[in-house]
Amino acid sequence: MLYNFVTPFADDFGVLNLFRYITFRTGGATITSLLVCFLFGQRIIDWLRSKQHAGQPIRDDGPSSHLIAKQGTPTMGGFLILLGVGSGSLLWCDLSNPYVWAVLMVTAGFGAIGFADDYLKVSRHNVRGVPGRIKLIAEAAIALAATAWIMYFMPAPLSSGLAIPFLKTVLINFGWFFLIVGVFVLVGASNAVNLTDGLDGLAIVPVMIAAASFALIAYLVGNAVFSNYLQIHYVPGAGELAVLCGALVGAGLGFLWFNAPPAMVFMGDTGSLSLGGTLGAISIVTKHELVLAIIGGLFVLETVSVIVQVASFKMTGRRVFRMAPLHHHFEQKGWAESTVVIRFWIIAVILALAGLATLKLR
C-alpha cells in the first residue's frame, strides 16, 4: 500500500525512492510483521486461553509426555501469524501485483480451512475436526483457483511449464494439466507442514528458513539481469513476493517468541495449513516447485514417514517407525523434545542450502 501511495511522488522527493527498492520494502515488511506479533501476541493468547479452557485436545495415541506437558495449551495461534503476514504484506507490497493477491488468497483460504478444523476440535474437545475428505476438497478448490489465477497472469510458456532444477532451459509444458500440478503442489505443501507441526517450535523455524530462501529466489527470478546471469527462468513481477516472504519471516519470528518451549500457544491447523499453502504458491509463481521439495525437504521427510508407516501397517501389519510422523519416532527412542527440534532445524538449514545451490549448478 505504501508503495502505491508513495512512489508517484518519488520524483519530487528523492527520499521516497527507497520505496521503489524491493530490498527496502522486504526489510520493512519483516519488521512490521514482527512488531505486530509482539504488540498483539500476548493479548491474542490471553483471549484464546479464555475461550479454550481445556486448550488443544491432545492425541491419546501420541507420546505420553504430551498428555501432561502440553495439556491446556491454547491453539489457533496461527491467527497471530496470519495477522503479521497480512499486515506486513498489505503495507509494503505493490498491491497492483496479481501474484501478491494470488498468494494472499491461498494464505487466507487455507487459514480459514485450518481455523474451521481447529474450532471443531476445541468446541468438541476431540482431536477430530473437519473430515479429511471435506478438508482436501476445500483445499483443492482454493488451490485450483489460485493456480488458474497465476497461469492467467504469467506469460507463456512459463504459465503451464514445470522447470527442472540443475537444467538451464528445460521446461516441461503441461498445458492445462498444469492446474493439476499446481493443486498437488499447494495441497501437498500445506499438509506436509501440517504433519510437521507436532513439537514446540518444530514447524515454524523450517518455514522461516524456507521463506527466507524463497525471498532470495523470488528476488532473483524477478530481476532480468540476475535471472539471465544465473540461467534461471525470468518471471516479471515475481520479485514482489520477496516482500511477502519477508513478512512471513517477521511473523514467524514473532510467533516463535510465544511458541518457544514451553509453548504458550500452538499454531494449530490455522497456521500450518496456511503457511504450507503460502510456500507452495510462491514456488509456483517463481517456477521453483521442485526446488521447494529440496528446501522444504524436512516437510517431505515427515510426510513420507507417515505414508510409509500407514502402507507398511496395512500391507504387513508391522510398523517401520515407533510412531509417525518422524519426530515422534525419535521422541519414542528417548530423544528430548528440544534435541529433536534443534536437530531438525539443522537439517532444514542444510536442505535449504542444497536447494539454493540449484540456482548456480546448472
Rank of each mutant, 00 (worst) to 15 (best):
A218D: 05
C245I: 07
V243D: 03
A247I: 00
P165D: 00
A163W: 11
A189I: 10
T169R: 15
A192K: 04
I217E: 04
F178M: 10
Y229W: 09
L253E: 11
M154F: 07
S272W: 02
V181D: 12
I209L: 08
M154I: 04
I164K: 07
L273K: 08
N259P: 12
V243S: 01
Y152S: 11
F226Y: 11
L220D: 08
Y152W: 13
L162P: 07
G182Y: 12
N191G: 09
N228P: 13
L256M: 13
N259K: 00
A203K: 05
N228M: 15
P157R: 04
S160Q: 13
I209Y: 09
G161H: 09
L171V: 02
F184L: 15
G246N: 02
N223R: 11
N259H: 06
V181H: 14
F174G: 06
L216T: 09
L199N: 01
V249S: 09
G252H: 05
A212C: 01
S160P: 10
S213K: 08
G222R: 07
Y152G: 00
S274F: 00
L256R: 06
L248I: 03
S160Y: 13
I232H: 07
L195R: 09
L244Q: 11
A251D: 09
G222N: 04
I232V: 12
F255I: 04
P236F: 00
F258E: 04
M264D: 13
I172P: 08
I217Q: 04
A251H: 02
A156P: 05
A192M: 03
F177I: 15
T169A: 14
A247C: 10
F178I: 10
A210D: 03
V170A: 11
V181L: 14
G254P: 10
E240V: 07
V249P: 11
W176P: 12
A251M: 10
A215H: 05
A242I: 01
V181F: 15
